[in-house]
């Protein structure tokens, strides 16, 4: 509790935090609002985009892209502690190195929970206005996708956290985070068998929010070898544990 209270003191008064969060909210609202005007195959997606219960799948799929922003925020928060030397001071003042890493892990949990709540509010807002079916059953039909999204956001931010503790410089850590999640791992995916690559971290995290309509595409062509969201939770939790543990190990073994 003490750890969380201290983190809140630091974050809530940090202008950069609010700037990144504002960007996150604004971009996501804009994308979701205007995506109904997008043309797919000569047809406007229209208001059916906001139909319960599939709305939850679509919204979490959109939010998936913005996890990058959350990851960058986590990198900024951690590398700041190195450039201000405040991580060092906290260890001098009586905190253990493990606690220092756990404090940041709790921040990722808090951010992921906030992002999930934000999606919930936005989903209810757009859904209740535009959805053709607003029965209780429809609204809460696929709301479990919010929890898959939560796990995914934590996973992305834990990867960012690992790079931040590994590299300690914000610019380089952000580059490494983007390079791994968007370039290096996807290249590896092409090189190896689908049977194996579906268990790789970014693929697992991605499987938590599948592309809407993937079932239909799969029915027409050979199915993509990806885990179902429910199945992806287990390896995702495994990767999160590994990343947190690796971060703790890094901080414990090195000079501050």
């Amino acid at each position: 509790m003490n750890l969380i209270r201290t983190e809140l003191r630091k974050i809530l008064q940090y202008p950069t935090f609010w700037a990144i969060m504002a960007t996150y909210v604004l971009l996501q609202v804009l994308l979701i609002y205007f995506s109904s005007n997008m043309m797919v195959g000569g047809q406007s997606l229209g208001k059916s985009l906001y139909d319960f219960p599939n709305l939850w799948m679509r919204f979490t799929y959109v939010a998936y892209f913005f996890n990058l922003l959350l990851g960058i925020l986590v990198i900024v928060l951690i590398t700041d502690e190195y450039s201000y030397r405040t991580l060092r001071q906290q260890v001098i003042d009586g905190r253990s190195r493990t606690e220092a890493v756990l404090a940041k892990f709790y921040v990722t949990l808090g951010l992921a929970a906030s992002a999930a709540v934000f999606l919930l509010v936005m989903g209810l807002f757009f859904g209740l206005i535009y959805s053709s079916d607003t029965s209780m059953g429809a609204i809460f039909g696929k709301i479990d996708h919010l929890s898959y999204f939560f796990v995914q956001a934590v996973g992305y931010m834990c990867l960012a956290m690992f790079f931040a503790f590994l590299i300690r410089k914000s610019g380089l850590a952000i580059i490494a985070f983007l390079a791994w999640s968007k370039i290096v791992e996807p290249i590896i995916h092409y090189q190896i068998d689908d049977q194996i690559d579906r268990f790789m971290p970014m693929k697992v995290f991605g499987s938590l929010t599948p592309t809407p309509g993937q079932e239909i595409i799969d029915g027409l062509t050979s199915p993509m070898m990806a885990l179902s969201p429910a199945w992806a939770v287990l390896p995702a939790l495994f990767y999160i544990a590994v990343l947190v543990f690796a971060s703790i190990l890094l901080v414990r073994l090195r000079d501050l």
């Binding site: 630091k10 008064q13 940090y14 202008p15 700041d80 201000y84 030397r85 405040t86 060092r88 001071q89 001098i92």
Partner: peptide, 9 residues
């Protein structure tokens, strides 16, 4: 140690 370590903001 070395410098005063605080959050500038």
């Amino acid at each position: 140690l070395e410098t005063p370590n605080f959050y500038p903001y």
